[in-house]
Nucleic acid binder design. Structure first.
Lengths: 169, 169
DNA sequence: CTTGGAATGTCAACAAGGCTGACATAAAAT
DNA sequence: ATTTTATGTCAGCCTTGTTGACATTCCAAG
C-alpha cells in the first residue's frame, strides 16, 4: 500500500505526488494561511474589525469606485453579508458610498483618507510577512509558489484574479 | 503592465519585491485558499458539518490517539470551541474517545470506520485538487511553493508542522 | 406613457463557529 | 491532604455567513 497515487506521471522524476507529499502540502497551506492572516488580524482587532472588513478595504482600494455587485463577485459572499460590513465601514468614515451617475441604483465605493490609512497599515503588515517569506525562499521559489497557487484556483476565480477590470454584463 | 508576472524572476535581480508583486501574491493566497477549501466544503455541507469538523478529522487521522490538548495546540482554538465540534463527531459515531491508559485524565481520540471513511472522502477531494495543481505547475514549482509556504508560517507553527510527534509539556 | 419585471442595494432574523468566564470532576503531582 | 492538570460543560457574546422581505431604480413591452 501507500504508493497508491502517482506511479509514473509524465515528465521527469515525478515521485513527488505521493499521498504523503500531498498531505504535507495540504497542511502547509493550512498553517501558512494562518500566518498569512495573523498580522492583519492583530491590527483589525484593535479597531474592532474582522477579516471581512479587511477584504472589503483591500478590494475597494484595488478598484476605486467599484460597485457593491462587483465586490460581491470578487469576495464570494452574499450581498447581505457584505452589506453589514460595508455599513460599519461607511458609518465609521472609512468608506464613502456615492450613488452611481449613469445607473442610480448602483453605489460606487471609495476609501476615505482614514480608509486608505487603515488599508495601508493592514496591507503593509501583510506585505511585510510576504516579503520576508519571498526573501527567504528566493526568486525561483516565488515563481513556483505563484504557479501552484494559480493552478489551485477555481477557473472562474482565476479569471477574476487576472482580470482586474469589472467585466459583468 | 501585463508582463508583470514572471518577467525576469530568475537570477539575483531582486526587483520582484515591488508592492505590486506582493499584492498579487496576497490575492493569489486569498483566491487559492478559496479553491483549496471549496471541494471539502461541498462534501461537508451534505453532512451538516463545517470546516472545523474537517480540521478535527484531519488531525485525529494524522495522529491516531492524540489527546484533546495536543489537538487544541495544533488547531489553535479554545477547548470550548473544539469541544463542541468533537462532541458532535463523537455523538455521530465518527470519533471515539478513550480514557488514556497511562494518564487517565487524558482522552485519546480515534476515528471510527465511519470517521475514516468521511476523512478519506474529504482529503481525497482536497488531494485531487492539489494533485492537479502540482501536475500543472511541475515539480520545481512545487518545491518553491512549499518553501514559500513554510517561510510564511509563524515560527512556533513551523515546528508543529515539522514535528508530527506530540511534544507538549 | 404606463406598467411589470429585473437589477441593485438595505433591513431583519437566524445559524455556525469563533471567543471568554465560571465551574465540576477526576487524576496526577507535590 | 492539597494543589495542579486535563477535560468537559454551561452561559453568553461576537463576527460573519445564510435566507427572506422590501424599497428603489431602470428598462423594455405593450
Amino acid at each position: 500500500m501507500s504508493e497508491s497515487t502517482s506511479g509514473t506521471i509524465s515528465g521527469e522524476n515525478l515521485l513527488f505526488l505521493t499521498d504523503e507529499q500531498l498531505r504535507k502540502g495540504i497542511e502547509a497551506m493550512f498553517f501558512a494561511y494562518r500566518g498569512f492572516t495573523a498580522d492583519p488580524d492583530r491590527i483589525l482587532e484593535e479597531h474592532g474589525y474582522g477579516r471581512a472588513h479587511h477584504r472589503a478595504l483591500h478590494f475597494i482600494n484595488r478598484t476605486h469606485g467599484t460597485t457593491v455587485n462587483s465586490l460581491l463577485a470578487v469576495l464570494g459572499v452574499t450581498k447581505q453579508s457584505l452589506n453589514r460590513v460595508l455599513r460599519t465601514l461607511i458609518e465609521d468614515g472609512l468608506v464613502e458610498s456615492r450613488v452611481g451617475r449613469t445607473d442610480r441604483r448602483e453605489r460606487n465605493l471609495y476609501l476615505t483618507e482614514a480608509g486608505r490609512e487603515l488599508e495601508r497599515a493592514l496591507s503593509e503588515a501583510q506585505r511585510e510577512r510576504m516579503r520576508a517569506a519571498y526573501r527567504a525562499a528566493g526568486p525561483q521559489a516565488v515563481a513556483g509558489f505563484r504557479q501552484v497557487l494559480e493552478a489551485m484556483m477555481d477557473d472562474e476565480i482565476r479569471r477574476q484574479y487576472h482580470g482586474l477590470k469589472d467585466r459583468r454584463k
